[in-house]
Design a protein around this nucleic acid. Sequence first.
DNA 1: TTGTAGGCGTTATCAC
DNA 2: GTGATAACGCCTACAA
Lengths: 326, 326
Amino acid sequence: VTSKDVAARAGVSQSAVSLVLSGKGAGRVAPAKAAAIRTAAQELGYRPNVAARTLRTGATDTVGLVVPDVRNPFFGALLRGAQHAARAAGRAVLLVDAQHDAADATAPADVLRASGAVDGLLWFGRLPPDHVREDRIPLVLVEAELEGVTSVRFGVEDGFRAIGEHLRDLGHRRVGALRAKVPQEPTFEVRAAGLEAGLGFAPQLEAVAPVITLEAGLVAARELLDRPDRPTAIVADDDNLAAAVVLVARELGIAVPGELSVAGCDDLDVVRVLDVTTVRLEAEELGRVALEALTALLDGEDPPARQVLPAVPVLRGSTGPAPGPR
Amino acid sequence: VTSKDVAARAGVSQSAVSLVLSGKGAGRVAPAKAAAIRTAAQELGYRPNVAARTLRTGATDTVGLVVPDVRNPFFGALLRGAQHAARAAGRAVLLVDAQHDAADATAPADVLRASGAVDGLLWFGRLPPDHVREDRIPLVLVEAELEGVTSVRFGVEDGFRAIGEHLRDLGHRRVGALRAKVPQEPTFEVRAAGLEAGLGFAPQLEAVAPVITLEAGLVAARELLDRPDRPTAIVADDDNLAAAVVLVARELGIAVPGELSVAGCDDLDVVRVLDVTTVRLEAEELGRVALEALTALLDGEDPPARQVLPAVPVLRGSTGPAPGPR
DNA sequence: TTGTAGGCGTTATCAC
DNA sequence: GTGATAACGCCTACAA
């Protein structure tokens, strides 16, 4: 059922239908005809064809959303926020799971490169490949920053500095960092710098998880804990990794926080139930703000070039005074 | 840059370009010309316009994916599976978070109703409104079943029966059910029936969480536990809710599993770290299988009408012998 | 106020 | 083998 059908049924021209249904008929089409058109459309169950409209107008009313790993609950919340804001702006969301853990991590971007598939892009975490920028498609970077690109991120340096100070004040002098080594995700560099600033020294030990999952965390945590000179505190780049530290400590019979303090980042349920100190990031809010920035860009407005959302420490029972010398 | 530009540069007609680049030029276009076209396209960075192609062919190569709540990690895994399979089939994924907890829970479906926005739909959990079926768009139902609609689901009745039997064998005679009362999500009815079959009796107590989140679970769990005649075991419809039960028990000083056994469903990280008995559902696999069924449908093949994936119990430390009479 | 007509970029059918 | 040519459904000047 096309606008032609509606025109035929209402006894008017096709252009009148288009005018009325797109809301631009005010003062140009007689009210009586407009009403006839509307009822005809209703009766026929008419819905404008998206492809035709897109071809004509050049706008898809769809935004692309590239996230590193949809399995991480952090991104679930973020999707919720973005999705919600998108709907409010009358746009749909095309999801791309970049699968940064997989071999074909660059491929997904191509899904969106098909010209005209999306009006704009929300790009999370990793820095986008050059060709994305070269496409000159409106772009908002999330949890990353790049010269000349609108971005939104958390002020993780503040959160990690606070955690660092907290541990320093508790007397910890030997600290391990459980880092998420996802290539090209600048937020993790920022976290490391913040932690070091707060501690007043660099963590002596470091283990790296190639993927941000509980499993990967278990492996890396063992590296840090299953050794004679283990640290008295471990700060993880992410809550999934922090939870893994707690599990490994339990497995090795290391008391938390008696013998080991643990902190993470995100404030996911998984550390909430374990009573683990963390840095709270309002992922849903981030998704909302980022999508609103993109919407502004698409509407030809001028959103703030760089927005930084708060990252506040949440002190819980997993951090305590450093143990005396063994 | 359009196919016309490519044609001009290669010195051929526009239709030849279309033929060659869509791979249908074999034996119809001279190899030399085909090569010229390909290099011209390469040099110009030509990419076919999606809207135009869609308008012409009627296919968008995009599938819609409607999930109840993207914040639940279960759906994160599911998205990963679906996304991966979609990419393998050369299709993009349009995500719709139905936000079953929100007021406008029916609205999101409309996003996809725009004719031609998607080729097919993967619909999770809740039964789709009638108008979706009336659109006669290829549809695969996930975690729900409906006469005449292709569906994929977990055999949760088996998992819950096993949990029921396990608890019965442990001597539990007073059981509470923490149910997810999400309207029209049939899987939860199935779980209840399975549990009852395994136990050999119906749970005496029932509390209902309106949303599947830790928060909602806390409220419902208190209802079940903060009373003199509390049950000796609680089975939750979902792991997020089961985790909440453990937290409330801890808060009330009830020993798990000494005084209270707890079981959930999904096998999320949140219960894994709490060592809670659950029913393992391979969400990623579900997403994959569902999307492959949809792909088959779209390709005119005939996928199995109803597929049932295994749901296996995972016994952990949160379930133990029923306590003696107090 | 209304209708006519052109074109968005593709694909696919047909004469050549 | 090849290249015009006609849609696909919509929007929007522009003419009536």
